[in-house]
């Protein structure tokens, strides 16, 4: 059974249909990459899965449970799904470790002292042990984004969503963030990414979905989507993106 399952997801902003009947399966431990031009609906889809946006129609299943039922308490679902944003969105008034401890303290009801060992272990695991006590503005973009990933992982999520997390980074900092994703993949995390890093998607993804005008018009293993795309739109996009 798919860990995350989307069926006929429709999202509109006014008259604009941003997600137009999306079906998608992400299996346990799988890394799925959403590719496509900006405005294709990738980010909105991720926000819908995390219930930051409410879908108009269709359904989203987490472990077989419909989490898109209107009126459902979103907090419980969100605490099971981690999300990382393009612009990091760290809380600027807290140190890195306070950023990571806030949600476990509030949602899981644990004290700082009780949390410290596991959170420190997370920072150490991603090579940030010496950055824990820094404020976000004392960190590089790559470090900030890695702290944002640690902050999401601190809630022990079952699925991680990544929304173009390297798009705001200087090119030389992209690698350290993508390495974190590879590390998570090797540890068996279920991940759904919206990304412009085609080379990374080709090498690391288990499945690639090409979105255009709110629809997944082509999907499959990266070797197929990148190697032998079936649709003319996919070929045109890849030709531009891989240049």
């Amino acid at each position: 059974m798919a860990k995350l399952k989307l069926r006929g997801v429709i999202k509109r902003f006014g008259d604009v249909t941003v997600c137009d009947g999306i079906d998608l399966d992400v299996a346990e431990g799988e890394m799925v990459c959403l590719i496509g031009a900006s405005g294709g609906g990738k980010s909105t889809l991720l926000r819908c899965i995390n219930l930051l946006e409410q879908i108009e129609d269709g359904a989203i299943f987490l472990d077989g449970e419909d989490v898109s039922v209107p009126g459902l308490d979103p907090q419980r679902v969100r605490s099971r799904i981690g999300m990382v944003f393009q612009s990091y969105n760290l809380f600027p008034h807290m140190t890195a470790i306070e950023n990571a401890m806030l949600a476990p303290r509030r949602v899981r009801g644990l004290s700082r002292d009780a949390l410290r060992p596991e959170i420190e272990a997370l920072f150490t695991r991603f090579g940030l042990a010496d950055r824990m006590e820094k404020y976000p503005d004392q960190l590089s973009g790559g470090q900030q984004q890695r702290v944002a990933i640690v902050r999401a992982l601190a809630m022990k999520p079952e699925v991680m969503l990544f929304d173009e997390i390297t798009s705001a980074l200087d090119p030389q900092l992209v690698g350290e963030v993508l390495d974190v994703l590879l590390q998570l993949k090797s540890e068996g995390m279920t991940m759904l990414l919206a990304t412009h890093e085609m080379e990374f998607a080709r090498q690391a993804a288990d499945k690639v979905c090409f979105l255009r005008d709110g629809k997944i018009i082509e999907e499959g293993p990266p070797a197929v989507v990148f190697g032998a795309p079936q649709r003319a739109e996919t070929r045109a996009f890849l030709k531009r993106a891989l240049k």
């Binding site: 907090q75 969100r78 944003f85 969105n89 809380f91 806030l102 949600a103 509030r106 949602v107 809630m155």
Partner: peptide, 19 residues
């Protein structure tokens, strides 16, 4: 986006406002 990030971690509206 600060609010979105905090909500995505599972905090309630109240907690997001306060913290």
């Amino acid at each position: 986006s600060q609010r979105a990030a905090a909500l995505s971690l599972g905090l309630t509206e109240r907690q997001v406002t306060r913290d």
